[in-house]
Write a protein that binds this DNA or RNA. Structure first.
Length: 903
RNA sequence: GGGCAGUUGGCGCAGUGGUAGCGCGUCCGCCUCACACGCGGAAGGUCACAGGUUCAAAUCCUGUACUGCCCACCA
């Protein structure tokens, strides 16, 4: 005998291995079939996968599995991402913790070795999770954004864009993360609110006058001030423009200028201009030809400032400066001020706007076809509310800073001849005593040689002393090429020809700009084709109260803990039940138990059917004819469920698919059909009923397989001897088709009567505490035989489901004494309950019925008396309203009669 | 400052132009020979607010409020 509760752990382990060994998920590249392709958003190799991965990848898995079962050549391309700064940070932390070392203690080469080791370790852990989650990824065929082929793709892109002059070097104010010691692109900067302060500082006039008061949040940058700006329309300062004031503590004179950028209402209306440390100021400085002075270096330390502060940390300098200003009587006011501060998206430390020469990609040309694709909806967003933000971002795009001053990543494929580029190259000796190129300046004469490998010699002087650019590329640079590079682009591979473009990109909306936009851009630029036509944006998995999950908050739910506890299917299904496009989902262990219970329900229903299969020889074909109402009804429900389940998949609304199948299997099949079928198990119809049961169950398992692959595969294997199926794996079987011929509106209506009457009877049983085992007598009465035709025909169902011993059906039946009364449609339901009737309860019940009926009658009558309703509403609506009125009137009359009887 | 979502029973969410559903929770009764991870039943909502369109609006439009997110050079 099978255990009573489903135990997923063993089953899942066994099946996960079986699928991989059978190469079930491998690329087929079958030219006779329509390809359906998804490239996985490659997870960063920064550690274990989290709930967000579990969610987005499960969505993809469902699509991939469903389309495979639709008969398409579906292929889900697996891989991981090297994750640039994020990964480097993880390794640095690990080094510090385990060995108390920095990356500089190891040196670049050794550090990279350590990261590569980590990749193999972490990568394997990730692939293990892929397998455990049941994702249809071929684990023998994994890509990595830094492997040889992907590196080739990166180089090809760099080279072509260099030749087209899209890639260029530029010196400008960039976002610098002091902690990560690298430049960042604009979208890698987050603007987070912070409780800061606004300091009002006095800059005295050069002529000894009182000068001007400015407001700033960054007093430590006053040493780099190049001017004070006021709005040209500002009457307060009109006569001061052109005069000079003295920077406090620095004793340097700077001019007062007029610029539109200054807001009249903010602060004092006077703005200090610090071109080297603020983006707005940089622009103002450019307009007025102001000198650029840098007082904070790449480590966040003060430089070029009064001796006292030199070498100080910028935060310390801020405090000291404020203190000294106060002492000098130049601090006019200090007020609390909440404002947005730029933070590094990887480490959270404050971004320093920093003058630096970096590599950029010019965006204006590249972006044009992307905008067109989104506008014409050749590129379609799901939900389409993302179209507008996407276009908005694309139209206002800035050039992309692609160089990062870190070690882990694709090294910029540019070389310099030490002879020819001499003046543009700065070297330093690292802690291992090796000479390293630390800084490249094109302004000072560095001459680039673009090459994948180290060139044998300099093309100009034929010298052989060549060094590679020290920077690496933004991690999103290689990600941008992912939908092409996974197929071996730029090589003309068969995979590229067959699988590209892919079908849909499924990913979180938080990386729409960071990633999706750039894939579209590269795809269109290099292939002229969109890398995918559909973008399905999923939401974020949050905690129970809607908070983002984070380690620091301690509200993280680890998917592997949950799968170990409840089974992978339960975790998957709980996510899918809530998978409405773009919607964040609140998640807690509670949401998994519901899904786990469903899995158990499937298991037990299957177990029950299998138990009753004893002595029956398969295979049993799906019966073509319904023998009775329940059969017609369940076939209709089944067909409808399949139709809706497929619709959900097509519309990327997997919550619809999950909920539909859940309610069909549990609510319709188990609660009603199996219960009704039980009585036929002992009859000659057993073979027929079992054929219907086993086929409907089996097909429902198929329909559920993309969502919960393990339990469905496991059960289907036991059922297979009884159905007409040769294929071992569900994935290779056909997804159930919607069969319109199974729809039976009349059967559904009749069944609704059976269910409705049964429910009324059950309610009364429950209300008057009729012992569950006690069979009762029920009388069904109406004023004409026609109203009773269905219950007469289906009396057996009602007797069974209502636990009725004696069911009398007839026109205008006499109501016995001591009887509970209910109404369904135009039928009166009398249940004689001598000794069990509680008069107060019955009275209350009837009064409630009466009140409801009166309200219904009033609203229906009101509507039907409106001339416009009769004139404009469709006839069906009018008929429906009339029918509802009659039903309400019947209910009222019967309830009132019953109440009168009671008294 | 601009944009986008959301606002539905205690909680979390679905939902279609014809006066509302699901899961969890609550309450009552049941270990009914598949399942107590279960079965049966009940209570509980004027679908944020104000206008408008319509015979009819929770569902469409406009505005307001609140919440969340994204974008943006008010220091």
């Amino acid at each position: 005998m099978l255990p009573k509760a489903y135990e997923p752990q063993e089953v899942e382990k066994k099946l996960a291995e079986k699928w991989q060994n059978a190469k079930l998920f491998a690329a087929k590249a079958d030219p006779t079939k329509k390809p359906f392709v998804i490239v996985i958003p490659p997870p960063n190799i920064t550690g274990a996968l989290h709930m967000g991965h579990a969610f987005t990848n499960t969505l993809q898995d469902v699509l991939i599995r469903a389309h495979r079962m639709y008969g398409e050549d579906s292929y889900w391309v697996p891989g991981t991402d090297h994750g640039g700064i994020a990964t480097q940070n993880v390794i640095e932390k690990k080094l510090a913790k385990e060995q108390h070392k920095t990356r500089h203690d190891l040196g670049r080469e050794k550090f990279l070795e350590v990261v590569w080791e980590w990749y193999h370790e972490c990568g394997n852990a990730i692939f293990d999770q892929f397998r455990k989650m049941g994702w249809a990824l071929d684990l023998s065929d994994i890509r990595f954004t830094m492997d040889e082929k992907r590196a080739r793709a990166v180089f090809e892109c760099f080279k072509q864009w260099w030749e087209k002059k899209y890639i260029y070097r530029g010196k400008r104010l960039i976002n610098w993360c002091v902690r990560c010691s690298t430049a960042l692109s604009d979208i890698e900067v987050e603007h987070l609110p912070e409780n800061g302060k606004l300091w009002h500082l006095r800059y005295k006039g050069e002529d000894g006058s009182e000068g001007i008061v400015i407001a700033t949040t960054r007093p430590e940058t006053i040493y780099a001030d190049a001017a004070i700006a006021v709005n040209p329309k500002d009457e307060r300062y009109k006569n001061m423009v052109g005069k000079k004031v003295i920077i406090p503590l620095a004793n340097r004179a700077i001019p007062i200028i007029a610029d539109e950028a200054v807001e009249l209402e903010f602060g004092t209306g006077a703005l200090k201009i610090t071109p080297a440390h603020d983006a707005t100021d940089y622009e103002v400085g450019k307009r007025h030809n102001l000198p650029i002075m840098t007082v904070i270096n790449d480590k966040g330390k003060m430089i070029n400032c009064p001796e006292k502060y030199n070498g100080m940390d910028r935060d310390v300098c801020r405090k000291e400066t404020v203190k000294d200003l106060d002492a000098a009587g130049l601090l006019v006011k200090e007020e609390k001020y909440n404002h947005a501060v730029s933070k590094c998206y990887r480490c959270g430390s404050a971004i320093e706007p920093f003058m630096s020469e970096q590599w950029f990609v010019k965006m204006d040309e590249l972006v044009k076809p992307v905008i067109k694709a989104a506008e014409t909806e050749a590129l379609k967003f799901h939900p389409d509310s993302w179209k507008k933000p996407f276009l908005n971002w694309m139209t206002n795009i800035q050039d992309w800073c692609i160089s990062r001053q870190i070690w882990w990543g694709h090294r910029i494929p540019v070389w310099y001849c030490r002879h020819c580029s001499e003046k543009g190259l700065t070297f330093a000796t690292d802690q291992q005593g090796k000479e390293q190129l630390t800084k490249v300046s094109f302004e000072d004469g560095a001459k680039p040689i673009v090459s994948f490998e180290k060139p044998a010699q300099c093309p100009h002087c034929h010298g052989t002393d060549l060094v590679q650019d020290p920077d690496v590329l933004d991690t999103w640079f290689s990600s941008a090429l992912w939908p092409m590079s996974v197929f071996g682009w730029p090589e003309k591979t068969p995979e590229m020809a067959h699988f590209y473009p892919t079908s849909v990109m499924v990913t979180g909306y938080e990386i729409l700009y960071l990633w999706v936009a750039r894939m579209v851009l590269t795809g269109l630029d290099f292939t002229g084709k969109l890398p995918f036509k559909d973008v399905y944006l999923n939401g974020i998995v949050r905690d129970k109260s809607g908070q983002k999950m984070s380690k620091s908050k301690g509200n993280v739910i680890d998917p592997l803990d949950m799968t170990a506890k409840y089974g992978t299917d339960a975790v998957r299904f709980s996510l899918l039940m809530q998978a409405v496009p773009s919607k964040d989902i609140p998640y807690s262990e509670d949401s998994i138990t519901g899904a786990r219970n469903f899995c158990n329900k499937i298991y037990n229903a299957s177990r029950f059917i299998l138990m009753n299969m004893e002595g029956i020889k398969g295979p049993l074909a799906m019966p073509k004819q319904a023998k009775e109402l329940a059969d017609q009804w369940i076939l209709d429900r089944y067909a409808t469920a399949i139709k809706t389940a497929r619709e959900g998949i097509e519309k990327y609304n997997l919550a619809l698919t999950a909920n539909t199948l859940y309610h069909f299997l549990w609510g319709d099949f188990c609660d009603w059909y199996i219960e009704l079928a039980k009585q036929r198990f002992q009859t000659q119809e057993k073979q027929y009923v079992m054929a219907l049961c086993v086929n409907i169950l089996y097909n429902t398992l198929k329909a559920l397989h993309p969502l919960i692959p393990f339990i469905t595969e496991e059960i289907a294997a036991s059922l297979r001897p009884f159905v007409d199926e040769k294929e071992q794996f569900l994935l290779n079987q056909k997804y159930p088709e919607f069969e319109e011929s199974l729809l039976n509106e009349q059967a559904v209506k009749q069944m609704e009567i059976v269910q409705g009457v049964t429910k009324e009877i059950r309610t009364i049983r429950s209300q008057f505490n009729v012992p569950p085992g006690l069979k009762i007598k029920v009388i069904l009465s109406a004023d004409n035989e026609n109203e009773l035709s269905v219950v007469r025909a289906q009396a057996g169902y009602i007797k069974l489901m209502g636990k009725i011993e004696d069911l009398q059906i007839g026109v205008n039946q006499q109501k016995p004494k001591q009887t509970a009364t209910a109404t369904f449609g135009k039928m009166a339901i009398y249940i004689p309950l001598t000794g069990l009737i509680d008069f107060e309860k019955e009275k209350k019940r009837l009064e409630k019925d009466i009140a409801a009926a009166q309200a219904n009658i009033a609203s229906r009558q009101a509507r039907l008396s409106q001339e416009n309703f009769i004139k404009h509403a469709p006839q069906a609506q009018i008929d429906k309203t009339k029918a509802e009125l009659v039903a309400a009137q019947t209910l009222l009359a019967q309830a009132q009669a019953a109440l009168a009887d009671l008294a």
